[in-house]
Amino acid sequence: MKQTVAKTEPIAGSPSGASSERPLVALSGIGKVFSNGTVALQDLNLAIGDNEFVSLLGPSGCGKSTVLRLISGLGDPSVGTIAWPREHDAGWRPQRDLGFVFQEPTLMPWATVFDNVLLPLKLAGAAKSESGDRAGEAIRQVGLAGFERSYPRELSGGMKMRVSIARALVTRPKILLMDEPFAALDEITRFKLNNDLLALWESQRWTVVFVTHSVFESVYLSSRIVVMAARPGRVIADMPIRAPYPRDEAFRTSPLYGDICREVSATLHRAMGERA
């Protein structure tokens, strides 16, 4: 069996401090076999630390969404462990410290923007007045103030995604899991949402795990890119992105951005070529 070519670079000058401190979440020796026999993941190791913006990048079928679902607890790994080293620390609230943004906005069509965003707090049985304020705050954060009473069908695709993000943020999570959230949006909207997401992340500094198949998007956003290969799904490179924040549209056209994209792209192509 072929070993994974883990390209481990020293993490220097990057905002990620995953290896030095206790990670937020640590996946070790993870394997996942679906009931139809497909090996989705094999011997996957990944530690994610505070304040990181980690992108899981890879071709379709490499199990990046599966990793996200395992972290969220929506599925159990066939082998291996997922550890939350700070589980017993004070201030850690199980369930509510996770935010999940799906590929689709996944809103309840019968509920207003406000009620959609309020849902996680309602399910957690939070006090009404406080959760109302929190929902309002989350809606403002994603730039949808004034649309509280609108129904999802009255919103554009980008706005629906903003609602979905607001819903994920309303519990003030420590870690935000995003599964190709902007894949279905047009480029202009996607760039705008990229910028808004980065601005939010820089001010709030939760950890983001972002699944994408776009090299350009992952380089623009991430502090660290984990490149994955398919069949079986595994990590083949873990690359810190040494570009300073804040990043803006100027970064998109900078030589540094081009260089990093080229490097990540080459790694990704190696990952895909390896498959055969």
Binding site: G73, L74, R96, T106, M108, L119, P120, L123
Partner: peptide
């Protein structure tokens, strides 16, 4: 009921009654 929404409810630790009341019944309307 939308499977992604079912996942979302599961993620937030919703009880069966909550899933029924907030998700399944409105979907069935």
């Amino acid at each position: 009921a939308d499977h992604n929404l079912l996942n979302l409810f599961q993620l937030y630790g919703a009880s069966r009654v909550q899933v029924l009341w907030h998700l399944r019944l409105p979907s069935a309307m």
